[in-house]
Amino acid sequence: MPWDFTSDRPIFLQIIEKIQLEIVSGRYRPGDKLPSVRELAQEASVNPNTMQKALSELERTGLVYSHRTSGRFITEDAAMVSGLRAELAEKVVAQFLLDLQKLGFQKESALTLITNFIKGDEK
């Protein structure tokens, strides 16, 4: 199954986000070995150079590290993973508030909306 990409942004950024999500959601666990660039490129149906660029960027941020000969691994730094989780959650919240603002809700009423929604959900 080729990965889905939106058309308006560079593909390597979208690959980075996808791998970040898989780390945060636990599909890739700390210390897991990543498939090779070529295998990942095939799985995603993207150019190997694009995949390489995305992985180098993930390596630069420390989320992924490479062992000279044995390949690339997911970081074992749990604090870094939870930091990333918080960062991604913040982005979702920011986008959510922006969407509500477009509908005419201000921040305070957004909170009421959420509280009511959660209550309704529990009933």
């Binding site: 058309s7 308006d8 942004r9």
Partner: peptide
């Protein structure tokens, strides 16, 4: 480069 063009234009190569 494809990603360079996509970044610059904010659009797909197709567009």
């Amino acid at each position: 480069s494809v990603d360079g063009l996509r970044q610059q234009g904010g659009r797909s190569i197709d567009t």
